[in-house]
Design a protein around this nucleic acid. Structure first.
Lengths: 282, 282
DNA sequence: GGGCAACGATACCGTCAGGGTATCGATGCG
DNA sequence: CGCATCGATACCCTGACGGTATCGTTGCCC
């Protein structure tokens, strides 16, 4: 199977419309119809049920949509990492590390310092992004290594090493009655009047139904807490980033948060290996 | 990048010889040279240093070799899983589960029974193979789900759920002095005169240097133990498979062995999800 | 040191896969 | 029942890819 065929099929499967898919691909509709038909012949599988009005995926088609997207990601990653390896002036490509904007900057700073002191260290670019993008960046070869937070982030398809574990605190507007407590339990905060827990987006960008406000990142969330519109359960380390009008109280029975360093499993780059080794020794 | 180009490059990178690579690919040498040159131009990267006598990989080339193999595996997996999904008579493809021949058949039997009783269960084919092949079968789309044993098997790039944890025992020829003990420690067996621990192959098929016999699978190993040529440290559950001329003694400080169920991370198949759910509820 | 063999690069050519335009046939809708 | 929409088909053309022949370079060995 050629990637061109896969791209064509993914386009049609996503649009469920040959005309629009062809437009998206920048080709005419007839060659697209032909290409799909030929792909089906070669696979010996009907991928799409088409009438002159509607196009729907068969079971096999939906398998190929999933697997094909993953395969195309892998091809793109190969291309991107090769380009990066080549255009690096030293011949030894730099590393791209991706982490959440809200993550503990302390750990990251320590890691970057320690790694820079290693013999043979290469330059490390840091990308800060929202939680959902991290996996994508790694899969697409735009990044080499990530700092993720279990159990929030999916480590699907990645190698990981645990770096640190911490408890969680509830972040409240300063002066809230609960801030007088030395600690609380989840039950104490799951139903605070007027201070719902926020809703985070799913992998597909949609939000689960529920009462809380929709948030995209941690800064946004803290803003909402300061405004008295929400409360937040966050890793302890976020305390160093709190403004004066926010207060944090440990939540005893909240799940621990583990910071892990993650990288694509087939990566055999010495730079990634060095960075991971440095991280585990912190 | 087209998969054809990737296949060409991987062939040359593996052979480090255009002529042999061309032969392997079933084409003539000139088109291959051209294709590689064109790939290099498009990537803006020198992949191979060639003189008229030798071909060597550049840094970028070795990145593309690693990443390209992974990408080709993903494409092959997409094709195979699609084919399987299609030729299944029900439209709903059956599952292929892969596990080691030496694994606990009890757990597997329970799992298959429980899953078969689920509503919407599909037929499950079981493949027994050596440890090294399991990952490959999953990556190449020949299998959908595997039972692996940590810490022996790599779960690189897979989703996993833990199923059970057990201690390990040392397997000895019946009548060996140690079999009188109720338990032993690793130190007791690491230097048994005449009964070395075996050597397992690395991922690339080579064996680490050392004194013990080279083994490829568990049956082979038990044979060697019965012959008095080796001893083996194995998960407790292997006791049910021991012949009369073998004895097992718990090893207190051997690492626990965890049986996990593993599947490719992007798999969204309901059948896999059902099977995993069933497994975790056992 | 010169002839030779091995090997990748280049030149040149033919074929067919893949893309384009025009049009058909089917289907849902007003 | 006519019309608009949409995928399939027919037909043509271009260029990408593969093949053969040959060149240029480089170790190697007598």
């Amino acid at each position: 199977m050629e990637t061109r065929e896969l791209r064509y099929f993914v386009a049609v499967a996503e649009e469920l419309h040959f005309g629009r898919a062809a437009q998206r691909l920048g080709i005419a509709q007839p060659p697209l119809s032909r290409a799909i038909r030929q792909l089906e012949r070669r696979l010996g599988a009907v991928l799409l049920e088409r009438t002159s009005r509607t196009v729907t995926l068969t079971e096999a088609g939906s398998v190929l949509l999933d697997e094909g997207r993953a395969a195309l990601d892998a091809v793109d990653a190969a291309e991107r990492r090769t380009r990066r390896a080549a255009l690096s002036p030293t011949g030894r490509p730099g590393l791209v590390l991706v982490t959440k904007a809200s993550a503990s900057s302390e750990l990251l700073a320590k890691l970057l310092d320690a790694y820079a002191a290693e013999p043979g260290a290469v330059p490390v670019d840091v990308i800060l992004c929202g939680p959902a993008e991290q996996g994508r960046l790694l899969r697409e070869g735009r990044a080499d290594v990530a700092l993720l937070h279990r159990p929030f982030d999916s480590t699907a398809g990645l190698h990981t090493e645990e770096l640190s574990t911490e408890g969680q605190v509830v972040v409240l507007p300063a002066g809230h009655p609960l801030t007088a407590r030395s600690h609380v339990h989840m039950a104490d905060i799951s139903s605070l009047p007027g201070l719902p827990l926020p809703r985070w987006p799913n992998a597909d960008g949609t939000y689960p139904p529920g009462p809380g406000p929709q948030v995209r990142d941690h800064a946004q969330l803290l803003q909402l807490v300061a405004l008295g519109r929400a409360c937040a359960v966050s890793p302890e380390s976020c305390r160093t980033q709190l403004h004066a009008d926010l207060a944090a109280v440990p939540v005893l029975d909240a799940p621990n948060v583990t910071t892990v360093i993650a990288w694509p499993p087939h990566s055999r780059s010495r730079a990634v290996a060095d960075l991971v080794r440095t991280a585990t020794r912190l």
